[in-house]
Design a protein around this nucleic acid. Structure first.
Lengths: 140, 140
DNA sequence: TATCAATGTTTGATGAATCAAACATTGATA
DNA sequence: TATCAATGTTTGATTCATCAAACATTGATA
């Protein structure tokens, strides 16, 4: 039945989301969004918090909280931009640079296992379907 | 690139999850999990909290919290089972029965819009893919 | 020079889930 | 009858995100 089917899809996405996050954290020892923050800081050398918010896709307040905690754990260094004091710039600390190697490997392992058995075509197809659902929601 | 692709899928699921929950709440005025609780209570006439936890797929502590709030809003009635005092049974209140009609319509509308343009075959295919990803995670 | 709108960040509050511990109840067992 | 393991529920604490408000900074404008 069509209704059961769409409810099923909805539940599956919610459930998968939960599985993804908890499995990611179990495998890497760090939450997915915090890893995403570190990942982008690593790739950007130095980046502003507002740019991070756009890349990671979470609220600026959450970005600040994550970074302050990572700063406290000596993973990143933050400084106010001399060019514009509104901007807080972030880069990996020495300790952070050392730990990012392991974290990236674990992250990659997780992502590889997640898509195991999927061909490029299937991933594109899945991506397209998820995009269509998102587009449908915009109409509401 | 394969790695970019799998990261993309991951981000898409996280993003879609967020869009689904916030759009659902905007359309119905109630959170998705709370609606799920009401939906199952409605369909079961009377049900235990522990059965609800299994159907809705969230923690027993969260179930208790949702139900106590719904009880406070006069949506449900809870009682200890005379057969076994460990079980708390839940059913819709009179007020709840009246409101569930509207909520169900809004929920159905949301689900119909979510899957607009999807054929049965495509939904099955999407479902299968999400299932495969979940299965992959179990291996970690 | 003072004022204004916009931007970026920080902090408090809130909602929802999980985790853990505490408590009550049940049925089995010695 | 007392003890035990298992089950169900409740509550406190925690995590993470969003929302809102407050604050600092910037560049434009009068």
């Amino acid at each position: 039945m069509s209704h059961i089917s769409s409810e099923e899809t909805f539940k599956q996405i919610l459930d998968l989301h939960h599985q993804l996050l908890s499995t990611f954290e179990r495998c890497t020892g760090i939450s997915a969004s915090r890893m995403q923050v570190l990942f982008h800081v690593y790739h950007s050398k130095e980046i502003s918090q507002t740019a991070l918010k756009k890349l990671v896709g979470i609220d600026h307040a959450a970005i600040t909280r994550h970074l302050k905690q990572l700063e406290g754990e000596n993973m990143v260094i933050r400084r106010t931009s001399p060019e514009d004091n509104r901007f807080t710039l972030v880069k990996l600390s020495e300790n952070g640079r050392q730990q990012i190697e392991t974290l990236n490997k674990e992250r990659e392992q997780f992502l590889n296992q997640m898509q195991l058995g999927f061909g490029e075509q299937e991933l594109k197809q899945l991506s397209a379907m998820l995009q269509r659902i998102k587009h449908n929601l915009v109409q509401l």
